[in-house]
Design a protein around this nucleic acid. Sequence first.
DNA 1: GACAAATGATACTAATATAGTATCATTAGC
DNA 2: GCTAATGATACTATATTAGTATCATTTGTC
Lengths: 134, 134
Amino acid sequence: MKLVTRNTDYALRAVCFIARNPKRAVSVSELVEKMEIPRSFLRKLLQVLSKKKVLRSSKGQGGGFLLARSPKKIFLVELISIFQGQVKLNECFFKKLSCPNKKTCALRKKIQSIEDYVVKELNSITIASLLEGK
Amino acid sequence: MKLVTRNTDYALRAVCFIARNPKRAVSVSELVEKMEIPRSFLRKLLQVLSKKKVLRSSKGQGGGFLLARSPKKIFLVELISIFQGQVKLNECFFKKLSCPNKKTCALRKKIQSIEDYVVKELNSITIASLLEGK
DNA sequence: GACAAATGATACTAATATAGTATCATTAGC
DNA sequence: GCTAATGATACTATATTAGTATCATTTGTC
């Protein structure tokens, strides 16, 4: 079971790199050089981040990507949501009508409380906090 | 993102049913009647649980499955491990040598601490506690 | 204006994990 | 011996994740 899949991981690392170079547009070519991420795949990920207003982009020569907002306002949980869907640990149990005995719902409650904790913790992680190493 | 996939879910429900009928072997046929789980699939899941010593089985007419130990000693986290692999939220980050800047490891630490919490909570859930509705 | 370097949009393939099925072999009670 | 059960095993189907490719568009530079 993974909390973070590879595309989130890649995206996160790229965003961190971009955040560390705030004054200029960072191109895919540069990112590919520094990180071991397949070019086409990375391009796709960054395009998604642009659409989702995490990054902003400029075309043409000298173009590339910048953060669309302060690193303090970019949360890890947002990247996870974009690439992996909403954090919902108990999906199965809610969807299942057939949960036959009421008592089993004790499980649902427990998982809900775990989920709440996870989301809260993930919400405390921003790009800024990662850069600071906190 | 799911904490519990369908096979764990099915297995859990079956185990709970078996736990509620402790004095006799419960057959797949009976479980299929009560729960909406495809017969072949459920058979496979129960066979796995037998191999893993969560259940014990008896063949032949009147045969079926019983718990191999007290419901207090069967943990949800064990079922998750069996069907979904070990709970390891931060797999990606550990495996990646390329984690380029030390600082990003702040993330690893954070995710580790989240994982510790999740595992601890999951470890507190037993079949017995689910039956009691706690 | 032509060219080159960049992203945008889009559609596709590949690999892996999850879900489900089928069948023959073996065991045990009646 | 028949029947009802599980054991072992091999297979298919579906969904998710990972990765690739290509053409269109924009923009700076000569």
